[in-house]
Computed example of a mutant assay.
Amino acid sequence: MKSFGANRVMTSSGKTFSRPISDHFDGRQFFDPDGAPPKSLRQVLRWQFSRDRRRQAWPKWAPSPHADTPPARVEGGRVRLSFVGHASWLIQTSGLNMLIDPIWSERASPIRWAGPKRRNDPGIAFDALPPIDAVLVSHGHYDHLDVATLSRLAARFSPRVITPLGNDISMRKADRAIRAETFDWHERIELSSSVALTLVPTRHWTARGLFDRNRALWASFVLETPAGKIYIVCDSGYGDGKHFRRVAQTHGPLRLAILPIGAYEPRWFMRDQHMNPADAVMALGDCGAEQALAHHHGTFQLTDEAIDAPVSALHAALDEAKIPRERFVALKPGQVVELS
């Protein structure tokens, strides 16, 4: 990463932080040199005013038949992955317990009485969580950075919270007990003697309000475990697949990829920031992971497709690509996968 001098960035909260200009920071905003800028306010309004004609109705409640009660620890080289819902996971290995983009709140929203509402319970009840050592937060959108959940975790477990640059400001504004640590793309963090993490570029963007677009950074994660590397993509568009091929080249071979398949309609609006299932199948081919798990679907209605459309479209895309369906599986909240 090239550095050309320091600048101070002001967020929507009025807080500032200092950051050198780089190949993905212009002194005011972060950007992806291989990505696309977020849609304009005019485009947002165009989508919102046309939604009633295209938006598919979701059931008010779509419960999962599964619920997980995880063990306190998973020792040795085995990796246990429990799907909490949306983009939230509990990953346990080598005596370490990690949460990904945890959200136990009823709504993915800056306000409690409006915004996308849960359609199913978290796959693990909050009180059933084991001791949490680390939390990975990919970016600042409300369905990924939920300060209410982070505050509950801080009060109960006081975990490390690993997040891209700038997202700590929103966390500490809400609760100074949240132990946020920020990192740039390509930085590697050791979580234990046998588990490490690298932040990698992803095709997305971030904001918490109307006037702080891309004032913080966003990332995917490559998690090194005794059972192999896990590529965790919490939100991403596909583009030309370059981001996924770079991860394969730099961090491969990958044992597992966790890839988003939902929140993709209408395509004219969502294409640059969210993959559809066909894109996700191409991303699996590009990153070269042995297996994949799908997420970012079925819990919060963020966009216009039906609640069951992502899984149906995933199956169709896998069949079209002649990839066995068991190589890329969509779990329901509360289901568990183990690697050894």
Rank of each mutant, 00 (worst) to 15 (best):
L150A: 08
V336G: 11
S158G: 13
K39Q: 15
H297T: 07
E181F: 04
L256R: 13
R246F: 08
P201D: 03
L129A: 10
Q301C: 09
G123N: 07
A87G: 02
G95E: 09
A128I: 06
R156A: 03
S193T: 05
R112T: 14
G85C: 11
V329F: 09
R271Q: 14
L314Q: 14
R176N: 08
L293N: 06
S192K: 07
P277I: 02
D32Q: 10
Y231E: 03
P102L: 12
P266G: 08
G77T: 10
I258A: 09
A317E: 13
A114D: 07
T225F: 01
I323P: 05
D175M: 08
T163I: 10
N276T: 08
D143S: 15
G5E: 05
K332A: 11
A174Y: 06
I323W: 03
R325N: 11
A219H: 06
A227G: 02
F25R: 10
D101C: 15
L284P: 09
G77L: 00
P102C: 04
Q92H: 14
L45W: 15
W61V: 05
R152N: 04
W268H: 14
W47F: 15
D168R: 10
A57T: 15
G228D: 07
S13I: 11
A294L: 02
N97H: 12
I178S: 04
V147S: 06
F17W: 14
S12H: 14
D26M: 09
L96R: 00
G95K: 01
L254P: 13
I91S: 13
K229V: 00
N120H: 11
R271C: 12
W58Q: 05
F126P: 12
Y238I: 12
P226I: 03
D175Y: 11
D23Q: 07
E320I: 10
F300S: 02
E187W: 05
R78W: 08
D101I: 01
T206S: 11
W61G: 01
H295P: 03
Q92F: 08
S193F: 00
L145C: 15
R119W: 06
A292C: 08
R325Y: 03
K332G: 09
Q249F: 13
A321L: 04
S193L: 02
L45Q: 09
A114T: 12
R156C: 05
H315V: 04
G14D: 04
R28Q: 14
H141A: 00
A219P: 03
E320R: 08
T16A: 00
D279T: 02
E290H: 01
A148H: 12
P226W: 01
L223A: 03
F328T: 02
A67D: 10
R107G: 11
S340P: 00
R203F: 01
P310R: 13
T299D: 05
E181S: 06
G228A: 02
T202G: 00
A306N: 03
H243K: 00
R42D: 08
R208M: 05
D121C: 03
R188A: 15
T198S: 14
W61P: 00
P253C: 11
M270H: 14
E326F: 06
K60Y: 08
P20I: 07
R112K: 15
R119M: 08
H251K: 14
